[in-house]
Design a protein around this nucleic acid. Structure first.
Lengths: 218, 218
DNA sequence: CCCGTGAATGAATGGTCATTCATTTGTTGC
DNA sequence: GCAACAAATGAATGACCATTCATTCACGGG
């Protein structure tokens, strides 16, 4: 229940209400799953009335889609900031930043990951979801490949395949997120982080040290 | 439509009907997703009448659960056969067999993977699904860790961490399956296979060659 | 202070779907 | 053949839920 003490209803700008409903939707998907979600649950979670979801989003389907886009856009923005920033002193620092970002608290937050995988699980049967998931991924994969190629060039490594390494990193992180989310006892977040770091360290030995213990704040 | 020409109904043993319904459920989940599935769709796909699902499974929920168990058990059996077989000439051959199995046609079949990830996507909000998914995974992870430890011992490698490598391999394969399933154009199966092979080759250089081109039958 | 505007409400509506069960139909033992 | 039994059917039932909309209410301009 999110009600912050208000007893009387108040008119608020559309954007505030939409954000409020999207946050409630994220919580509800995490708690009840995509097939258990109802507008009654979402609006109750938001402390609002039944009809409000359709008022601001026209339909349940559009609310779900905007919720997915909200989550993916947030991740894409953070990642793009790292891939495009001018502030990194070295390629190794940039790759490390990418890794740390992928396991930072806002990214591995339980509810958001739950939303992400809930939609992915339905993606192949719903082209709309599939497009929302893939949209920015293609571009990210290209940029990560370029970054990895740069690291290989700096190391004089002509044998390794940057595209293969990038595809592997992306899939590895997806798999780690999924396993840590579903059963954190079998795969604790700290261990997941170390696995990903090890993957990068063995591909870019000159840029990334193996032993640095990160993620201590978890 | 699966009707194989029969026009009149026929009484068949319980097990045959259950199998028939589970196969139809797999197809329907792949086509419509977990939140779009209905008993009408499943029974129509099976060429049977509406009431038959409840007759043999008591409820929709139990049908879904048995379908999940069917898919996981099939995978677990194939994997266990490799991990326990006495017939491998070397540790390297066993690891290679594990890899080839993970990307063999029956395992990467679109419909089965779709079922697997559909349930995983709902797993954190449904303890029943979570248990069905995790049940055998813990044991598999232990056995794979032992296998990897054996390979490290044989290579005289005392620095590497078998548990970390096993967790990484399992998550990597999950991530590769997911990405190849959702968008095979961005990650073709052949490339996914090469990524996984590369992961193992860099961990077990003495046991697994990098360049062998597998998966030509795809 | 009092409207006019539009945000918000929630009871009512209609559609979808799991589940039930009376009936039909095939099978098996005699 | 013929009961007796079990499997299978699908129309009927009732629960649940997205969506609608008449009504209520808060706010700002005059």
């Amino acid at each position: 229940m999110t009600r912050t003490g208000n007893k009387s209803r108040r008119a608020l700008p559309k954007e505030v209400r939409k954000e409020q409903l999207i946050q409630a939707t994220i919580k509800c998907i995490a708690k009840h799953g995509l097939s258990g979600i109802t507008l009654a649950l979402v609006t109750r979670e938001a402390g609002l009335s039944m009809g409000i979801a359709n008022l601001h989003f026209d339909s349940k389907e559009k609310l779900l889609l905007e919720t997915l886009q909200h989550v993916t856009a947030e991740y894409a923005a953070g990642q793009a900031a790292i891939l495009e920033s001018e502030d990194f002193s070295s390629t190794g620092a940039r790759i490390t930043a990418l890794l740390d970002f992928d396991f930072s608290p806002p990214v591995i937050e339980k509810n958001k990951l739950a939303v992400w995988f809930a939609f992915l699980g339905e993606a192949k049967s719903r082209p709309t979801y599939q497009r929302a998931c893939s949209r920015q991924d293609s571009m990210a994969q290209m940029r990560i490949t370029e970054l990895f190629q740069l690291a290989l060039d700096e190391a004089g490594d002509t044998a390794a395949d940057a595209a293969l390494l990038a595809a592997g990193y992306i899939s590895l992180v997806d798999g780690l997120w999924l396993n840590a989310l579903v059963d954190p006892r079998r795969l604790p977040w700290k261990k997941a982080y170390r696995v990903a770091r090890h993957y990068l360290a063995s591909a870019f030995a000159q840029h990334i040290a193996l032993d640095k213990r990160g993620l201590d704040g978890m």
